[in-house]
């Protein structure tokens, strides 16, 4: 049931949103074409802006993997990772995700390219990248903007949310794609 529901959402989400957004735009008399072009220009800039992060992460991850470092780590952590059904390849992604969105995107993209978007690792990396936010970045910027120095439990809860979303990604990927 859950599988069916989530598959239907995946299938319909994009066309439905395009339809809904454009229709609402028309009804609200938004100059839709101009608005689209303006947004697209911003998207172009974003894509160009992430290139340096992508290069940094592609290089680091690939060097670490080709050297045999990744095998070393996964061999070392194998009992723990196997118990939870976590492929060792996604560990750098899980560690990078709360720190930097663009860097994490670089790692996720590298995994998707190397193992294939429709492999288990590729799918898991996609879900992980799509489901958490850059906790450290947001907390630093938001608290910094009003001069708060004592974060209390905000950081702990943000990281807890990242952990939950990581474990939950692993669970749902096993269930849907495993």
């Amino acid at each position: 049931m859950l599988e069916y529901l989530l598959a239907q959402i995946s299938k319909w989400a994009i066309p439905a949103l395009f339809f809904f957004f454009l229709l609402t735009g028309m009804l609200r008399r938004v100059p839709v074409y101009e608005a689209f072009v303006r947004g697209a220009a911003e998207g172009f800039q974003t894509a160009v802006k992430i290139i340096p992060y992508m290069i940094a992460m592609f290089v680091a991850i690939k060097v670490f993997r080709v050297s045999g470092g990744m095998d070393l780590v996964s061999g070392f952590l194998a009992p723990l990772l196997n118990f939870f059904g976590i492929p060792a390849e996604v560990l750098p992604l899980a560690m990078m995700r709360p720190l930097s969105g663009s860097s994490a995107l670089g790692i996720a993209t590298e995994l998707i390219k190397t193992y294939g978007p429709d492999s288990f690792i590729g799918r898991l990396a996609s879900v992980m990248q799509g489901s958490t936010d850059t906790t450290f970045f947001i907390i630093t910027i938001y608290f910094g903007s009003v001069g708060i120095r004592h974060y209390r439990h905000a950081l702990a809860l943000g990281l807890f949310a990242d952990l939950v979303s990581f474990m939950s990604s692993v669970y749902i990927c096993h269930r849907l794609f495993g």
């Binding site: 989530l6 959402i9 995946s10 989400a13 994009i14 996720a108 978007p117």
Partner: peptide, 23 residues
Amino acid sequence: IIGVRVAAGSRNPVEIVGATIFA
């Protein structure tokens, strides 16, 4: 990430949407 999946030649780039909402 859907864009990355399209770029990498996925057969079904949007199949992860449901899973992401769940997570």
